[in-house]
Simulated assay, not measured.
Amino acid sequence: MLKFVKNHMATIDGIEIYPIISLSIFFVFFAALFWWVFTAKKEYIKKVSQFPLDNQENN
């Protein structure tokens, strides 16, 4: 089965671009997330981190 899939994929023109695109999307997403984490305001992080605790007190 694997041999069939491998041979079938080799016959598709332009298929080599898909792994490059997926790696690029992966890298850009995590680079943006990394940038956001280090540039986020500390007050916002403290406020958001208290949401689960505030919800328990209201119940």
Rank of each mutant, 00 (worst) to 15 (best):
residue 1 M to K: 11
residue 1 M to Y: 00
residue 1 M to L: 11
residue 2 L to D: 11
residue 2 L to M: 14
residue 2 L to I: 15
residue 2 L to F: 09
residue 3 K to I: 15
residue 3 K to Y: 03
residue 3 K to T: 15
residue 4 F to W: 01
residue 4 F to V: 11
residue 5 V to Y: 08
residue 5 V to W: 07
residue 5 V to C: 11
residue 6 K to R: 10
residue 6 K to T: 14
residue 6 K to I: 15
residue 7 N to L: 14
residue 8 H to P: 10
residue 8 H to R: 15
residue 8 H to F: 15
residue 8 H to V: 15
residue 8 H to D: 15
residue 9 M to H: 06
residue 10 A to Y: 10
residue 10 A to V: 09
residue 11 T to S: 13
residue 11 T to K: 11
residue 12 I to P: 04
residue 12 I to L: 10
residue 12 I to M: 06
residue 13 D to E: 13
residue 13 D to K: 04
residue 14 G to M: 10
residue 15 I to P: 09
residue 15 I to C: 05
residue 15 I to H: 05
residue 15 I to M: 12
residue 16 E to V: 01
residue 16 E to H: 10
residue 17 I to K: 15
residue 17 I to M: 10
residue 18 Y to E: 02
residue 19 P to F: 03
residue 19 P to E: 07
residue 20 I to F: 00
residue 20 I to S: 07
residue 20 I to A: 05
residue 21 I to D: 07
residue 21 I to T: 05
residue 21 I to Q: 08
residue 21 I to V: 09
residue 21 I to H: 04
residue 22 S to I: 05
residue 22 S to M: 02
residue 22 S to F: 01
residue 23 L to K: 03
residue 23 L to M: 06
residue 23 L to C: 03
residue 24 S to T: 14
residue 24 S to R: 13
residue 24 S to M: 07
residue 25 I to M: 06
residue 25 I to L: 02
residue 25 I to F: 02
residue 25 I to Y: 03
residue 25 I to E: 02
residue 27 F to D: 05
residue 27 F to L: 08
residue 28 V to C: 07
residue 29 F to E: 08
residue 29 F to R: 12
residue 30 F to K: 00
residue 30 F to D: 01
residue 30 F to Y: 04
residue 31 A to D: 09
residue 32 A to R: 12
residue 34 F to Q: 04
residue 34 F to M: 00
residue 35 W to V: 06
residue 35 W to G: 01
residue 36 W to D: 01
residue 36 W to T: 06
residue 37 V to T: 03
residue 37 V to S: 01
residue 38 F to Y: 02
residue 38 F to E: 02
residue 38 F to C: 02
residue 39 T to C: 01
residue 39 T to N: 06
residue 39 T to G: 00
residue 41 K to I: 13
residue 42 K to I: 00
residue 42 K to H: 04
residue 43 E to S: 11
residue 43 E to P: 02
residue 43 E to F: 05
residue 43 E to L: 00
residue 44 Y to K: 12
residue 44 Y to I: 15
residue 44 Y to V: 14
residue 46 K to Y: 09
residue 46 K to C: 03
residue 46 K to M: 07
residue 46 K to D: 14
residue 48 V to G: 05
residue 48 V to E: 10
residue 48 V to Q: 10
residue 48 V to M: 09
residue 48 V to D: 08
residue 49 S to W: 12
residue 49 S to L: 11
residue 49 S to T: 10
residue 49 S to K: 13
residue 49 S to Y: 10
residue 49 S to I: 04
residue 50 Q to D: 09
residue 51 F to H: 04
residue 51 F to D: 01
residue 51 F to R: 03
residue 52 P to W: 04
residue 52 P to G: 07
residue 52 P to R: 01
residue 52 P to C: 05
residue 53 L to D: 14
residue 53 L to V: 09
residue 55 N to T: 12
residue 55 N to E: 12
residue 56 Q to E: 15
residue 57 E to R: 08
residue 57 E to S: 06
residue 57 E to Q: 06
residue 57 E to W: 11
residue 58 N to D: 12
residue 58 N to F: 12
residue 59 N to I: 13
residue 59 N to L: 15
residue 59 N to D: 13
residue 59 N to V: 13
